[in-house]
Design a protein around this nucleic acid. Structure first.
Lengths: 232, 232
DNA sequence: TGCCACTGTCACATCGTTGTAACATTGCAC
DNA sequence: GTGCAATGTTACAACGATGTGACAGTGGCA
């Protein structure tokens, strides 16, 4: 699953565009499914469980946005990353698209290179599929299903960013990450945020974890941070 | 390498613009090279091997796109990230630019802040981290991934410089290095520090390693130091 | 509309690290 | 052994990196 090319479902009513995208993705090592309509897309999703969806804005019948919203509402597909495609000049749609739950947004026309890059970024960010097990480290527990964190059974109140940060750390223990890497992994590749912002969120996270567990997040001077149970 | 300011080549035929960009980047800690033409750019690339290129769309002679394409075709420069600059209203160029291999695309006028942010993001993405294996020598272990050193499984507290020094030694065992060579390799070529500074850091490193492993760092009188498992 | 949670950024405080000098010790040549 | 140069050791001030609190902007929600 990690090694094998991920399955990407391409939903667009124009065959040539689908084809072009498919070729580009296959060259990059992805496996492609194509759908011209929402109905077709739906059956592909049920049958083949793609790892992500490339969704055109304009579709006959149900619009792309509506479909995206539907996918996000359904438990079965809520975790599936979506990239929306839209024609030039409809930049305004961006907001709607992202609000509907899309993970990224590309304006047509786009280069294959850009497409693959964004797709990679989105997939990288996407949480591993399947049943997500709670992670527990010496009394600190993060439950992805309930989206909840407890420290020695006491609930920990943290914002979304701190949650993602903690989740990343708990799924990548012991390893040191630079601020830049954390921005990539936790914030997403294409945002422009100061590196110092990471420090602030680290601080917030530590504070929320309290004395019981703040030591798990270690500063690696001159490099970044690390989540580790071993003393530094 | 990571720490040192990256070298950025600015290619634009208008001197004031180049200058403005250069000032912004230098304030952000980057080293700038400027070129007014493709020819000039080319020789800069050959001579100074910049880490990335800021390329104006409009250039006398060979166009920016053409130059970008050329860079991507050449093995030597294929990996070099490119950000294209273009005047407002030429949005259509975006596709061509990205297809030519540009990694990002900025529309003039832009804020220095945006420029630096994007540049950072592109550089971040372009620097892949290799899979680095831990190195172990008779109970002394250095793990580059975790950025951690242990002596017989007990953590060793050292600063960044001592860490780099130890890493260098462990990847270059048995060989004697002069203070000058160590400054070159560990501190980086273009810094001026007293050679005696090396002695101090050697001392700090030995102290941190403790009796168990300090003997691995041997003094080569009249020459420098050596990391060796054999007794001197 | 106003409230509230969250985010990103800044300014300032704090702490670790760094390079250097000054002095102590060692080893070698004579 | 003596003298000298090389190296070990320590202390310290300057600097840079990180911690910390405050703030304004944003968007959701009642």
């Amino acid at each position: 699953m990690t090694k094998a090319g991920k399955r990407v479902l391409i939903v667009d009513d124009e065959a040539p565009i689908r084809e072009m995208i498919a070729v580009a993705l296959e060259m990059a090592g992805y496996e492609c499914l194509e759908a011209a309509s929402v109905q077709e897309a739906h059956s592909h999703i049920v049958d083949h469980k793609p790892d992500m969806v490339l969704l055109d804005w304009m579709l006959p019948g149900t619009s792309g946005v509506e479909f995206a919203r539907r996918l996000k509402r359904d438990d079965m597909t809520a975790e599936m990353p979506i990239i929306m495609l839209t024609a030039k000049g409809e930049e305004d749609n961006k907001v709607q698209g992202l609000e509907a739950g899309a993970d990224d947004y590309i304006t047509k026309p786009f280069s294959p290179r850009e497409l693959v890059a964004r797709l990679k970024a989105v997939l990288r960010r996407a949480t591993p599929q399947g049943v997500e097990e709670p992670i527990e480290v010496s009394g600190l527990m993060l439950d992805p299903v309930c989206h909840r964190v407890t420290s020695n059974s006491k609930p920990v109140e943290i914002g979304p960013t701190e949650y993602r940060l903690l989740q990343f750390f708990m799924t990548h223990q012991e390893r040191a990450y630079s601020r830049a890497q954390l921005l990539d992994q936790v914030w997403g590749g294409n945002v422009y945020v100061e590196e110092r912002t990471v420090d602030v969120h680290i601080r917030r996270l530590r504070k929320a974890l309290g004395k019981a567990h703040e030591h798990l997040i270690q500063t690696v001077r001159g490099t970044g941070y690390r989540f580790s149970t071993k003393a530094s």
